[in-house]
């Protein structure tokens, strides 16, 4: 019974990570890719880790701690990639809606802009 729960958690987690990977390939622009790469992989990883924790004899707390750290680091990584991408040149960013960030970021911040 315990083994079944472990398997199901691991399978669902792996499926999320797989779909996130496909999404990262398929989505049009950088931010779209990041939406896929940040959310679904974090949940997918958490589920796989939970499966590992439920299957382990020792060190469960350690695995749970890893989940906590990933929840802290994963959005931080996304934040920095997104921040850098906005300033970099040649990055594929498509926006149909409003862009409030443009107002506060000087053209001087961009490497090519003057």
């Amino acid at each position: 019974m315990n083994g079944t729960i472990t398997d199901i958690l691991a399978l669902i987690g792996a499926a999320f990570v797989l779909l996130a990977g496909i999404g990262t390939l398929r989505f049009g622009d950088l931010y779209g890719r990041m939406h896929a790469a940040t959310k679904a992989t974090t949940l997918g990883f958490a589920l796989v880790a939970l499966a590992a924790a439920s299957g382990l004899e020792h060190g469960r707390a350690k695995v749970l701690l890893v989940v906590v750290f990933v929840f802290i680091t994963s959005p931080a990584v996304a934040h920095f990639v997104g921040r850098a991408a906005y300033r970099a040149e040649g990055v594929d960013i498509e926006l149909e809606g409003p862009d409030d960030l443009h107002i506060i970021i000087d053209e001087h911040d961009k490497p090519g802009g003057q």
Partner: peptide
């Protein structure tokens, strides 16, 4: 951090 993990939003 939480915004980046909720649907459709990403902190930049």
């Amino acid at each position: 951090d939480a915004i980046s993990l909720t649907p459709g939003t990403l902190t930049l």
